[in-house]
Design a protein around this nucleic acid. Structure first.
Lengths: 259, 259
DNA sequence: CGGTCACTTGATCGTCTTCAATACCAGTGG
DNA sequence: CCACTGGTATTGAAGACGATCAAGTGACCG
């Protein structure tokens, strides 16, 4: 979390969008160079420190945002301290769609961030001239929707072990070509955030990690490093086929194995 | 549930989209009359009986759909019988966005339905000629996203009482102008579907209904009729301020407000 | 009527939460 | 070098909420 963002070079300042590292990742990639030049004129770049929020749930939704660097957590809160993280937003992510007149969630930096801000009105005008951008936005929203539905299944129907397995698999596929995954992970968020994302408490997260390690499905390093040891078994878990689950064993036949 | 759909008149058959009852509700309303005429040429109207599904999770996503009449439940399933309903789709609802190459959910009729089906390719071509339709689609997706995030908070962090209160309030605002709500409801779905939507079991749904009635917050009629008696208290509940919750009151600190 | 189906109610059990103590780790200053 | 500190993670014991299993009720319909 002490990692610093690269400082913009003078050239970056002169052509802020053309040289943006996140350009290829997000909706901005839909714009031609002249489009980007115009985009640069209507945007404001803001630096956000750890723990600081740049979108507040309930505030009038006047702006759109694009993450240029760093990661944010997006969450909703109840009147007491209960909180549900609905997702994490990394470089290229477009934010502000999920808003009627007011923002539906809060966005807070979990590491140092650079974020581009646009007035909604100005961006809408830009979209009229560059319909490809609107198409990209629709694709982005659809993908968010697919992810949200998967998360609903997780929150509504999965056990703690299944939730964590599912989450780890998702992380291991982050930014990988379809069908591939990496084994070594460095989770960017704390146990607390993980709990708020998976609908569990810190303690349950911790216990479940420990148990998965004891079962040799994963290995745990320092600084939130995780190594996936048994991908197959983890995938079984995430799909709801839990061998040691002791969930509705509608047998009475053999194989009533305790954990 | 024995209610029948109105049979299309000869005039309806000749001008299927122009006379559609759902036209004003959904994305089709974005089209001018000539646009609708063209829409009519690329669509197929299908009748769906109760319990029948017209979108299957995992199937290749070749079509878009618009609900013309009736209601569908949209859900995802785990390998055992666990199931999470991600939403209900009524007249005017556009379906098929939440799909990459394959559909992300199953859609099944909870009452007799009439559904319009479009080849994705044909509809995309239509959207290029009528950009307003694409804008509507983006709005629809954004609204779905807001709803999905609210549901995540519900599934991840709310108690059974809070979930049901929140759901009833949502129903009471269905199709009402902003800020208003109705007191008399007729729920279109069974207890089982309600459980699968709220991440609870049938029994818990039933018990929670009974308890809310005992507390004079609602009244229950036959045929899934519900009357809201104490709107204020129900709203308190849905926002997480539960008087009889006996949940951890971290008081002894006077107003330690964060953010 | 007997049948089915959806819902309700009751008793018991398990998973996750809550509360609490301890371990760990990096940074600071004696 | 080591105690002190604050934050984060782990572990333990007890409790609660909702799930599970099981029985009972009521409506609808042949």
């Amino acid at each position: 979390m002490t990692r610093q963002l690269a400082q913009p070079t003078p050239h970056d300042v002169a052509h802020p969008c053309l040289t943006c590292a996140a350009r290829s990742l997000g909706v901005c990639g839909a714009l031609s160079d002249p489009g980007l030049a115009r985009l640069a004129t209507i945007k404001t770049v803001i630096e956000v420190a750890v723990g600081q929020s740049f979108i507040a749930e309930g505030d009038p939704a006047t702006c759109f945002f694009v993450v240029a660097a760093g990661t944010a957590k997006l969450f909703k809160e109840l009147s007491d301290d209960r909180r549900q993280i609905t997702g994490f937003a990394g470089p290229g992510q477009f934010l502000g769609l999920a808003a009627t007149d007011n923002y539906a969630f809060t966005a807070e930096a979990i590491g140092p961030m650079r974020v581009c801000r646009f007035q909604r009105i100005a961006l809408r005008a830009l979209m009229d001239d560059f319909p490809l951008m609107e198409k990209r936005l629709l694709t982005a929203a659809s993908d968010d929707l697919v992810a949200a539905q998967a998360q609903m299944l997780l929150l509504g129907r999965m056990t703690a072990r299944e939730r964590l397995a599912s989450f780890l698999l998702g992380q291991s596929r982050q930014g990988m070509p379809a069908g591939t995954s990496r084994r070594q992970l460095r989770l960017p968020m704390s146990r607390g955030d993980l709990g708020d994302y998976l609908g569990l408490t810190i303690e349950t997260i911790s216990r479940t990690f420990t148990r998965l390690r004891a079962e040799n499905l994963i290995d745990l390093g320092s600084h939130n490093a995780v190594t996936i040891l048994d991908l197959t078994e983890l995938e079984m878990l995430a799909h709801g086929c839990d061998v040691r689950a002791l969930r509705p064993v509608n047998n009475n036949t053999a194989l009533t194995n305790a954990s």
